[in-house]
Amino acid sequence: MTTQTAPPGRQTLEAPPAIRATGLVKAFGPIRAVDDVSFELRPGRIYGLLGPNGSGKTTLIRLLTGMARPTRGRAEVLGVTMPARAVLARIGYMTQSDGIYPGLTVGENARFFAAAYGVRGTEGVRDALHLVDLDGRLDTVAGTLSGGQRRRLSLACALVHRPPVLFLDEPTVGIDPLLRAEFWAHFRALAEGGATIVVSSHVMDEADRCDELLFIRSGKVIARGTGAEVRARAGTDDLEEAFLRLGSDVEATR
């Protein structure tokens, strides 16, 4: 299953990290949604943030996209400390909810987000809609699309400005296996084009499509590595089992 992974991390070490978290903490009152997280993520790779609901994946993504300010620590994207508005033009963000305007057509939605990102010209819009196979439905009102089509439009809206860094918050929730496979093929193609992609998921069977996994539990990164590495460390072939074992270690040492 790991045959399609990009070159191992060692070979890409020369490239500067696209995303860097340093001692990142986000506290909501006494609760630490993100608890002292540090990592570096490199271009051209797909990183999977894996963890149960409420483990802090979305908060972590919000810190990295500058949608929230860290309580402590630092989040950097493309060498700039977040939050920073200027960097936003180079980040693609697909939210958990579709985040598209149901009253607008497919084309209007994509063009609106392109304009919001400050994109001139129509190529980005055309390519993004072509990628998700919606270029034949430009004039369809988004509210009348099927759930899967809406998800595809949502992805396209995150791609209209050809971002070098892409955050996808549970992009494949509620879509059928066929579309899911399609999405992963898109992600892989974008990564091969040099993009840094962070995908959050609580579905373990998607993990092997990522180049590297970050297991998130109670706001902490409890394990990091390729699927094979994580399996070896946990001493099991089953990722779900590995997640549980690694997680219980953390719980025990707390």
């Binding site: 200027a86 033009a89 963000y93 939210t95 909810s97 579709d98 305007y101 919001a116 990102y117």
Partner: peptide
């Protein structure tokens, strides 16, 4: 509530 504002705020729009 539709998530579009969150998304809009993830763009350089002020």
């Amino acid at each position: 509530t539709g998530g579009t504002l969150e998304r809009l705020m993830a763009t350089p729009v002020t």
